Simulated scan of single mutants.
Amino acid sequence: QLLPADADRVLWVRESGLAPEVLAEYAGALDGACPGRWDVLELNGGEALKCWDAMPHLFDTFQAHGLTRSSLVLTCGGGALSDAVGLAAAVWKRGLRVAHMPTTTLAMVDAAWGGKTGINWRGSKNQLGTFTLPEFVHLDARWLVTLPDRERRAGLAEVAKHAMLHAHLGQVHLESWPAWDTSPDALEAWTTKLEKSAQSKIAVVDADLHERGARAQLNLGHTVGHAVEAHFGRTAHPWLHGEAVALGLRFVLFQAMDRAPEACLFLDRWLETHVPLPNTPLAQWPDAESLWSHMTHDKKNVADQVVDVAWYGWGKAKWPVMLEKSTFEATWARFVRSMEEAGQN
């Protein structure tokens, strides 16, 4: 029912390994909506897809299936897949229509919404991309049943971020987060809660699509988070995006402790419980110098200045905050010591 009535073809680009019974249900829906006018491309998802080398295969597939600007590319996977396929669709014939059926917690609550597409370039996150709003985003928590537990939990970092930024969500939204259960009632509850988180992002995007003002606050925790992700992405044991963002948020909370102590303590415990960090020894965590080298390539920067978001309590964020390297180095060192004293690794 969500498909554009005038779509001449639909290409369903989906990740491998999704729940067969849910796939069959949506295949039936496509048969009913556009019989004989849809095709499937199955890909392996994950960060490896977010590279320029993945683009030619997507372009060749679009051409082979005769996609036009009246066609629809329907993604079905995690945030990396919607980012990469969304970029390919945005530039093919100067813009195909795209829609998303996210299958990971992270994509459901954040990555599928807001129109950002992107791939990485020379080790830096999301250096190539567009702002291209999807035709629609359809959430169904049943996709999470086959998602590895680590990935399902990692996406909850974005849930915490939205609660931090929007006072109408706040602590209540996190305290009432449903326990994981594969029963129909529990999955419906997860769908409802994920939609509520996502709606808070939509309101911000509607007011500032191209991230020139208020939308930049949605990068809370991501300046350090992206640097952490890039650092471990070059190792034998990469961190997931949500895990890196969770660490970035906990660094934000460390800096805000004097401003909002009760909220910071609650959030730090919530993140520790719901988004456990990989068991990488602290001795192998990146030092401030390594992180700073990645942060200087952050897409939010202005000229040579590293720009970040500061947090002052539920619904209270400040942007832009200009970072000084020496201050960051000293604060990061104190933060890592505090994690060590708290028993992290």
Rank of each mutant, 00 (worst) to 15 (best):
Q1W: 03
Q1H: 10
L3N: 04
A7F: 04
R9K: 15
V10L: 12
L11V: 10
R14M: 04
E15T: 06
E15N: 04
S16E: 05
G17V: 05
G17L: 09
E21F: 03
L23M: 05
L23V: 02
A24M: 01
D31N: 05
R37W: 08
W38K: 08
W38M: 14
D39S: 14
V40W: 02
N44S: 08
N44T: 09
L49K: 03
K50A: 01
C51L: 11
W52L: 13
W52R: 09
P56E: 08
P56Y: 00
F59H: 10
T61Q: 03
F62A: 14
L67G: 02
S70F: 12
S71V: 14
L72F: 13
L81Q: 00
S82A: 07
A88P: 04
A89Y: 06
W92P: 07
K93L: 15
R94Q: 08
L96G: 07
A99I: 02
H100D: 07
M101R: 08
T103P: 02
T104Y: 09
A107Y: 04
G115C: 00
I119L: 07
G123I: 10
L128R: 01
T130L: 11
P134V: 07
E135L: 05
V137N: 06
L139G: 05
D140F: 06
V145A: 13
R150V: 03
E151P: 03
H162N: 15
H162M: 15
M164R: 10
A167C: 13
H168Q: 12
V172Q: 15
E175S: 07
S183G: 15
T192P: 00
L194N: 06
E195H: 13
K196M: 11
K196H: 12
S197G: 15
Q199M: 15
D206Y: 12
L209D: 02
A216M: 13
Q217S: 13
Q217H: 14
Q217P: 06
T223R: 06
T223G: 04
V224C: 12
E229S: 05
H231Q: 06
F232T: 08
R234I: 11
L240I: 01
H241E: 03
G242Q: 03
G242H: 05
E243R: 02
V245K: 00
A246L: 01
G248L: 01
L249K: 05
F251S: 01
V252F: 02
Q255T: 09
Q255S: 14
A256V: 08
M257D: 08
A260C: 14
E262F: 08
D268W: 00
W270R: 04
L271K: 06
L271E: 05
L277V: 03
P278L: 06
N279F: 08
L282N: 10
W285C: 04
P286A: 11
D287N: 14
S290K: 07
S290V: 12
S290A: 15
W292E: 05
H294K: 10
H297G: 11
D298Q: 10
D298A: 11
D298Y: 06
K300C: 00
D304N: 11
V307Q: 12
V309G: 06
W314E: 04
A317T: 15
K318C: 14
V321P: 03
S326P: 05
F328S: 00
A333S: 11
S338I: 00
M339Q: 10
M339K: 09
E340C: 12
N345A: 04
